[in-house]
Write a protein that binds this DNA or RNA. Sequence first.
DNA 1: TGATTTAAAGACCGTTTGGTCTATATTTCC
DNA 2: GGAAATATAGACCAAACGGTCTTTAAATCA
Lengths: 178, 178
Amino acid sequence: MGVFWSRGYHATALPDLLRATKLSRGSLYAAFGDKHSLFLRALDRYIDDAVTRLNVELDPRKEPVDGLRAYLAGYVDRTSGAHGRRGCLVIATAMELAGRDADVNRRIANFFKVMEARVADALSRAKAAGKLADGVDPANAARILVCFVEGLRVISKTAAAGVITHAAADALLDRFIR
Amino acid sequence: MGVFWSRGYHATALPDLLRATKLSRGSLYAAFGDKHSLFLRALDRYIDDAVTRLNVELDPRKEPVDGLRAYLAGYVDRTSGAHGRRGCLVIATAMELAGRDADVNRRIANFFKVMEARVADALSRAKAAGKLADGVDPANAARILVCFVEGLRVISKTAAAGVITHAAADALLDRFIR
DNA sequence: TGATTTAAAGACCGTTTGGTCTATATTTCC
DNA sequence: GGAAATATAGACCAAACGGTCTTTAAATCA
């Protein structure tokens, strides 16, 4: 997974995968079929990890506003410095392959749908608890937050070291909560 | 430019470029040097177009809030439907090459810096005119808006046709203006 | 231990990659 | 019209691509 994450699909050659998996050419093809299948497995694992994290942070049994704060803070941390410059496998794949690979497109579209749904759900719970500012629509706000965190990953690819974005994330959430 | 935009750097082969430029192999190399140089020219043109548009929309002589509204609306339009699925050359390049290509990194980092500066400037002018909501910091808000529009481009790569985001963009801006 | 399965190493395959070069047209200019 | 410059088509190159296959070594098990 790591090598696709760092280099992208096309830029990852067989020798890179052999080094990363410590498998021989024959074993790799016996185990995974071909490069594309192996990539799909890597992408699935990456997405699973992300969804798992989402389910923890936005757990319905937790305080929704705290969860949203943790969700945003997690993205800020993961896009700071060297982590940020590594980028995001989902976004890189979306831009590189989504238009020409239906398997990839389906997975990524679903991931964004799930994330938006989890965030919208947390916002709905916050609204029900009277924690949201007047006139905030959970569906719109969820889309805004998802776009914000994904945009964060994009600009962090080239951001200079030491750029702090926690303040922006806090400022954004503060606009929605009471 | 178009072929890099549609396919990305690695996935664009020489024959694609010959077809797109209607040049022969020899002429193309005489005119541009090599694939990487040609790509840099395409990227520069794409960025120039974007900066030009930015300068029009956020022109200091115009009403800043109107400009910001036009800026957001423009991104929403350009990420809807087929346009959206084509993606964005800057983001695709950031994810594909920025980590390993200093020329590319410099251009993209600068582009994001310029965009954020233009947006921050418009927000500052709006604040001076008393048009901003209480407690809104132009610098933080600018980063939020930039991340939002870039995130929009990402999720639009795989979004189903007909998904409307104008409402989210309006909702976001409405949180910052009075 | 000896037979059998499993994995490693890497030669090998056809194709495609980015890039060069030559021979042939096509302009351009006087 | 004829010489000089320019652009074309496409042969050609070495290297790298994804993928297969054979040969050798290691592990497994009775």
